[in-house]
Amino acid sequence: MITQMHVKGLMFDPYNNAYIVVLRDEEHSDMLPIWVGKSEAGAISMSLENVTPPRPMTHDFMMSFLDAFNAKVISVVITDLSEHTYFSKIHLMYEDSEYTVDARPSDAIALALRSNAPVFANNSVITKQSSEELEQWLENLKPEDFGKLDS
């Protein structure tokens, strides 16, 4: 089972000098935080804020690369959480065939925002990191509690 998630925003995590991408479901009952590096956060925030840079940034180039042959991003799915690292898949449509490509969530989300494709999360991933747990966890925040960055 998968649930559609919306990118709600980015938070700065001063303990790790990293950023957190906050995903929420439609009912706002579930929240999924994903830690990403600074440049990855930049790629996501440019899309959220509709900033058009003077030169194509890496994910804009990525879009041009897919557009050049009319390949479309259909959806991205956050598939797994293992040892504090999130895994995701990008689903592409190209010439009537579907392709599934392994990606870091930061790349997948940056690309989904640029192609207006939906972001889904496996329910198992959300369960592993339910919002109630998150609040408690945020309250008891210790630097060593943080896992690896998404980069």
């Binding site: 790629a43 890496t58 994910h59 180039f61 990525m62 690369f65 897919l66 390949a71 690292t85 895994f87 990008i90 592409l92 490509v101 392994d102 990606a103 870091r104 790349d107 998404d150 980069s151």
Partner: peptide, 13 residues
């Protein structure tokens, strides 16, 4: 351990 952005572009290719 995980594909970086340009690895992803190569993977698309």
């Amino acid at each position: 351990p995980r594909p970086m952005s340009h690895d992803l572009i190569k993977s698309f290719a």
